[in-house]
C-alpha cells in the first residue's frame, strides 16, 4: 500500500504543477494568443451588424484585434459578476451595464450605442401573411409555435412580452411560446421553421440570411419600453486603450452608418 500512496502523491504533485502553471494560451500559431485580442461580449442582436464592423476593424488593426462572443445579455451579466475576462460588454439593454457600474466593475462612462427594435418574423413556409395581419397573425390556427427570447435573461424577450401584453394578446398566445436562450437562437428557431413565427430583433431580420427566406412586421415602437442598448468597458480589462479604441470605432461615422443599416436607431443626445 505504501507504493500506491507514492504513486498517488506523484500524481497529485503533477496535477498541482499543471494547475499552478501560469495561464498560457499555448501555441504561438494561435491568433488569439499572439496579439492583444480584446474580448467583446455582445448581445446576440448584434451578430450581423458587428460581424462586418469587426472584420474591418481587425484588418485595420492587426495588433489589437477584436474577438466577439454573442449571447444573451443576462447571461453575460451573470458571467461578468463571476469574473469573466471580457474587455467590453455590449448589452441589449441599459440596466445590466448600470448594475455592473453600481457594483464597481466598470471604468469610464456607460455608452448608449443603439436603440433596438422588435419585429414579428415568419418564414415563407408559414402560410400567414405577417406583414398584412400584424400581431393578429399569432391567432391564426396555422401558427402553432411562437419563438420568443427567454424574458428571464434576454432583454428582447422582455420587450416581446411587454408588447404582447400592451397589445392585449398575451394570455391568448402564451401557451404557444417556445423560448430561445438568446435572440439569435430565437431567430434560428423561426428561420429553420421549427417555430412558425418568432419575435426577433430587427437587426437580425434585415440580414440577408433571414430576409431572403421570410418577412417581418415591425412591432409598434410604443408597444414596449424603449430598448436603449448600452455598452461598458470592464475595469478588469487588461487592454484598456485597445478597448477604448474599439468603442470609439463604434461611434465613428462609419460605425454609426453600419448600425443604422442593420435597423438600429441611434440614441438621442
Amino acid at each position: 500500500m505504501k507504493r500506491t500512496s507514492k504513486i498517488l502523491a506523484a500524481a497529485l504533485v503533477a496535477l498541482t504543477g499543471i494547475f499552478l502553471s501560469p495561464a498560457r494560451s499555448a501555441d504561438p500559431a494561435d491568433p488569439a494568443a499572439s496579439t492583444a485580442a480584446i474580448k467583446v461580449a455582445a448581445a446576440a442582436d448584434l451578430q450581423y451588424a458587428l460581424e462586418d464592423l469587426v472584420k474591418e476593424y481587425n484588418t485595420k488593426n492587426p495588433t489589437a484585434t477584436v474577438a466577439v462572443t454573442y449571447g444573451s445579455s443576462g447571461k453575460f451579466f451573470a458571467q461578468l459578476q463571476n469574473g469573466a475576462p471580457f474587455d467590453i460588454f455590449l448589452s441589449a439593454d441599459i440596466e445590466y451595464p448600470q448594475k455592473l457600474e453600481a457594483a464597481g466593475l466598470t471604468i469610464d462612462k456607460i455608452f448608449p450605442y443603439a436603440v433596438g427594435r422588435v419585429v414579428l418574423w415568419a418564414p415563407k413556409t408559414t402560410p400567414v401573411d405577417v406583414q398584412k395581419l400584424g400581431i393578429k397573425s399569432l391567432l391564426e390556427p396555422a401558427v402553432k409555435k411562437i419563438a420568443i427570447a427567454n424574458p428571464e435573461h434576454a432583454p428582447y424577450g422582455r420587450a416581446s412580452v411587454a408588447a404582447l401584453k400592451s397589445l392585449g394578446i398575451y394570455d391568448q398566445v402564451q401557451s404557444k411560446f417556445v423560448y430561445g436562450e438568446n435572440i439569435a437562437q430565437t431567430a434560428q428557431f423561426a428561420q429553420s421553421g421549427a417555430a412558425d413565427v418568432g419575435f426577433v430583433a430587427l437587426a437580425l431580420a434585415v440580414s440577408p440570411k433571414m430576409s431572403n427566406v421570410g418577412s417581418y412586421w415591425e412591432v409598434p415602437f410604443d408597444a414596449y419600453p424603449r430598448m436603449d442598448q448600452a455598452g461598458v468597458i470592464l475595469k478588469a480589462s487588461g487592454h484598456l486603450e485597445a478597448a477604448r479604441a474599439f468603442r470609439d470605432f463604434l461611434f465613428s461615422p462609419h460605425g454609426i452608418e453600419v448600425l443604422k443599416k442593420f435597423g438600429f436607431s441611434l440614441p438621442e443626445k
Partner: peptide, 14 residues
Amino acid sequence: ITGSRLPFSFQGLL
C-alpha cells in the same frame, strides 16, 4: 497563488 482566475479560463475548463 497564481494571479489568474479559474472560471472562464482554460485551466478551469481542464
